[in-house]
Amino acid sequence: MNILNKYIKATNTHNFNEVKKLLHPKAVYFFSNKTCSTHEEIQEFFEHTWSVIENENYAAQDVIWLHAGTESATCTYTYCYEGYINGKYASGQGRATNVFLKESGEWLLIHEHLSPLPK
């Protein structure tokens, strides 16, 4: 589905206003170390990450659409990031689950869950 690509593209702008256009008003994010349940908390988390990982590029691999209906869609994927931390190249991966809802003809992200890959 195109909405995941739009979301990844918005994330890679490093401009939260672009990400926010794709967020449901009740969006909730589960990160490995924090839960964000308001747009303000989500923005703070994104902007902190962008400040720590300079020039970050975020990508999705091995996308599996568990459900893709007319009003909701859920996918899992391996997220990949790369950028510079304290001037040194860094990269990593983890697991992601995204849930999208279609409201007023627009797909919006209502939930994202990111976690480390199992060891």
Rank of each mutant, 00 (worst) to 15 (best):
L101D: 11
K34H: 09
Q43D: 03
M1P: 14
Y89A: 14
A10C: 05
G83A: 04
K20E: 14
A59K: 00
L101M: 05
K102Q: 13
T78G: 06
K26I: 05
N57V: 12
N33K: 12
D62F: 14
G69S: 15
S37G: 10
E41M: 10
H14D: 02
F46K: 02
N33W: 13
V19I: 15
E40S: 13
N15R: 15
L66R: 07
K26D: 15
W107K: 03
A68M: 04
G87P: 07
F16L: 00
H24W: 00
E71T: 11
F45I: 03
N86P: 05
H39W: 15
I53T: 11
E44M: 02
E40D: 13
A73Q: 08
V99I: 12
I64N: 11
K34L: 12
F30R: 04
T74M: 11
K6D: 15
G69R: 08
L4M: 10
H48T: 14
S32E: 11
K9P: 02
E40R: 13
A59Q: 12
S51F: 03
H67C: 05
A27R: 04
E54R: 13
C36H: 01
G94V: 05
F31D: 05
H113R: 01
E54T: 13
F30M: 12
N17I: 11
N55G: 09
L4Q: 07
I3M: 11
L117G: 06
A73I: 04
T74S: 02
E103D: 10
L109C: 10
K88V: 13
E40F: 09
K34Q: 13
T35R: 12
T78R: 04
Y7S: 00
T38Q: 00
S37I: 08
G105E: 12
G87K: 07
Q43M: 12
C80T: 13
G83E: 06
W65I: 08
K102P: 00
N98A: 14
E112M: 10
H48S: 13
S115I: 09
T74V: 15
Y77W: 10
R95C: 14
T70F: 07
C75F: 02
E47F: 01
L66C: 03
I85D: 00
K119M: 14
P118R: 04
T97N: 02
Y29Q: 05
H48M: 09
I3N: 06
T78D: 00
T74F: 05
T78E: 04
G69L: 10
V52T: 13
H14G: 02
T13V: 07
E54I: 09
T38I: 01
S91C: 11
P25N: 10
N86E: 15
V52I: 15
Y89P: 01
I85F: 07
A27P: 03
I3C: 05
Q43P: 02
